[in-house]
Each structure stands twice: as C-alpha cells, then as structure tokens.
Write a protein that binds this DNA or RNA. Structure first.
Lengths: 229, 229
DNA sequence: CTTAATAAGTGTCAATATAACATTTATATT
DNA sequence: AATATAAATGTTATATTGACACTTATTAAG
C-alpha cells in the first residue's frame, strides 16, 4: 500500500501536555495554567497544545514549553502516551505527555502571567482537567526513578548550589529525609561534583560551600552507571 | 472551545507497533513479520497496525498482539511514542510502541505463519523498516531496566522452570554471565520463588528442581521494592 | 572583647550486601 | 563397580549502607 491506502484509517488529534517541575528550596513544584478555553475552561490544567503535521512530537513539546516559559534547551523527556477513548470530552484526542525540569526563577514571568500560570507544591495540587492528575502522578514516579540513576536533579537547582540545597531537593523528590553525613558522603563519592572556594552566606553565619555539577567528569563515569541514592 | 473548535487542528494517523520478546533457553528473541504491504513490502518489520477511534491505544496494542499471536492477557507495557515527521514515508503517522513478553511456544503457529512471522535473536536482527530498529533498541534497554526491579522475567519462562533456565534468561537479557552460586543465593533470598518437589530430568542425570514464581508472596513484598539483580 | 547563637562540616562502627572462588552430590550410563 | 554429567552448596574478603554526635566558623548581641 502507498499513501493512498493509509486513507482508510482513522485520524486522531494529538495533544502534547507538559508536566513542568521546579524546586523552590523546600518543595517540589509543578507549573499549572488556568485553562483558557472550553471544555473545562477556568480549571487548572497542565500546559498543552496540539501537535502539527509539520513538526515532530518532540518539537511540539518544545514549542509548548517555550510558549509558556520562554525557555529552550531544557531537560525534557517523553513520559507516556495517554490514549483512553473519552479522555478529552472535546474530541477524540490522544495526548503525549512530557516532563520538563526547569529552574523556577528562569522562566519568563510575563509569559507565565499571560497564561495565568502558577506553581503548585506537588503535595497541594488542585484538581485538574481530564486525566492530567494521572499524568502528574506518573511523572512524579518517573522522576523518582530517573533521579536515582541520572544526574538530572541538577536541572532543578541553580548552577551553583550548596550541599543542603541538593539534599533538600532529593528529600523533596522522594518525600523523605536523609542523614546529612551519609548523604554528603554518598554524593561526593560519585566524583561528579566540584567544590567551589566560594560560600553561600545568607542562610548561616558560617556559610556553606557552593558546588557545581561537573558534566565532563560525569560523562567519563556514566557508562559504569552511577547511583545517586 | 468545544468540539467545533478542535476542528482547526491537524489530525494524525496513529500506528501501534509491538516489540514481542521471547526466550528459547539460549537467547532473547524478538518476533518479526514480513511486511505484507507498501511501503517497504517484503521487509522485516515489527507487528503493527493502526489505532481506531473507538478503541484506546492500549486496546489497539492488545488487538494487534492478539492478531499475530492469538494471545490475550499478556504482559505488555507502553514503550514510547515515536513522532518524527517523516518516520513513515507512507504518510504522516506517529507510532506508539509497546513491548510484550510471551512464552515462545504458546503463540498460535498458524497465525504466525499467515504473517510470515519469525523469531530473531536480538543479536542477529535483520534490517527493519522505518524506525523499528530504534524501537527494538529502546525496548531492550527498557526491558533491562524493568527486569532489574520487577518480576517480569517469569513472563518469558514456562510456569515451572529450573534455576539454570532463570539464570540463562537473566544472562540473555543483560548479555553477560553470572556466578551460579551468587545468582541462586540472590534470587532465593528475595523469597518469591517456590521450590517444587519435582525435577527436570532431560538435561542432566541428577535432575534440577523446578521452581514457580509465587505471586502472592511477591505482592506482600512488592512495596518494599525488590531487586532482581 | 567576650559570649551566645546558628548552621556547616566531619568520623566511626556495626551490619549488610556483594563478589570471588571449588568441592560434593545425585543419577544414569557403561 | 566405575565413570560421566550437571546440580547443589558454603566461606571469606571486600564494599556499601545506616545509625549515630560533636566540633568549627562566623555573626550578632551584650
């Protein structure tokens, strides 16, 4: 069969929805918008949009993230394709969900405002349209799995961060607490952090040393498979 | 916007492709078919088909697996949505890939024949249509990740299996070899296998005890998170 | 300048998990 | 009775994990 033969098959609208994670120092956050059109106008929703024939689905996801946040070259990963029949009452729509990790203060405030976007703590999420709650739950699980073996937590932190910020992030992701000494030992033993001579002085009198993630060192060790927990 | 508003957006053909894994005692295998229609007719391909508006994508995947193998209630998991623009020269088609684990001898031989289906060792795969090679590669990676923490390897073995069969399976999945004593100790320590009084006698004079996977025991321990490696 | 307050930084020990390694056992065949 | 075959099993050294508390650097207050 050629192009002609495919004509007989059904065609779907393909939406892309983005679970955008951020970290504010205390809790893991997701960026939600107030849905601006029917159905379910006015309810909280993930940022999404429809894919276009002339772009790949990955490109659609990037476009949608850019539209909301003004950000490009962001860590983003496909999560899952949601394809229940009546998941969107507005039409026969399948949705490919992506999750992104951004630094919360780097997004474009005006763009966020124009979409009535707001950060919500994952533990205090409002009710969401359609199956977006399932998407967020799955994204959180995937994030937990991924963070355990890949150095993506750093995407949520400033380039320079203290050991306590890093620990707070991991504690937020796993909703648990770690022993400070064991955590520091474990993370430093991986050999992918570089300690800066500089200190963060606002949160204590003594000051805490900054660290940066060293991508080159990581690339060398990556094949051996590091465990970040 | 209501149903009318969605009209303005592009619609896609949605294919579903299945990476069907099997294990024959030595190597990890994938089930391929000879593609029976254009484009790329006559080339090796994953089993696939187009999703229909009246079914979910998961249901489409099950339907396609059933069509080829005659099997239902099979372990199957969504892998990834492949959405490059020109991935299928026959039309604008996105594909949602699934991977399934089946017992190689339980599939319907006639159905397999009617699709000119054949099992290929993952290490000796022929060239495949479109992006199916990427799909297989990703499926293999996902299988490796998944098998490490979930008891899905048993889906590829007979209900009763010997410790050596199980070890051979893990060795095939990870393309490595394990020490027999350490492997046995590790697996048994999980406490999810039940040893039968019965022995498999064809491959040795002494005979090897059969084991079965005990789903009930696993369910009790699942929340603690078992490591199968 | 001394003291107090605050968060940062650090080490040990016990328990557990892993990795490396060879011999004995059960059975069928000759 | 001897032999051949694959199955079954245990020990030790090393590495990793988890539990646990005191010292240090600095600023602010008196």
């Amino acid at each position: 069969m050629g192009r002609a033969e495919y004509k007989q098959y059904d065609r779907f609208l393909v939406a892309v929805d983005c679970i955008i994670f951020g970290f504010d120092g205390t809790g893991l956050k997701a960026l939600l918008i107030k849905r601006g059109f029917e159905p379910e106008i006015g309810k909280w929703s993930l940022m999404g949009g429809f894919a276009r024939l002339e772009e790949s689905i990955d490109e659609a996801a990037q476009r949608i993230l850019l539209t909301l946040t003004g950000l490009e070259e962001i860590y983003m990963e496909q999560l899952h394709c949601f394809g229940e029949v009546a998941r969107d009452p507005g039409g026969q729509v399948i949705s490919v969900a992506y999750f992104a990790l951004i630094k919360i203060d780097e997004s474009d405030k005006e763009k966020l405002d124009s979409h009535q976007a707001k950060w919500f703590d994952l533990k205090k999420m409002p009710s969401l349209v359609f199956d977006h709650k399932d998407m967020v739950r799955l994204a959180k699980e995937r994030l937990q799995q991924k963070v355990a073996n890949h150095p993506i937590g750093f995407e949520l932190l400033p380039n320079k961060f203290t050991m306590q910020q890093l620990q707070a992030l991991y504690e937020a992701v796993y909703e648990t607490s770690f022993d400070k000494r064991n955590f520091t030992r474990k993370i430093l033993s991986l050999g992918v952090l570089q300690k800066l001579p500089e200190k963060e002085k606002t949160s204590s009198k003594k000051g805490a040393f900054y660290y940066v993630f060293d991508k080159k060192k990581y690339k060398k060790l990556e094949s051996r498979g590091l465990s970040f927990l």
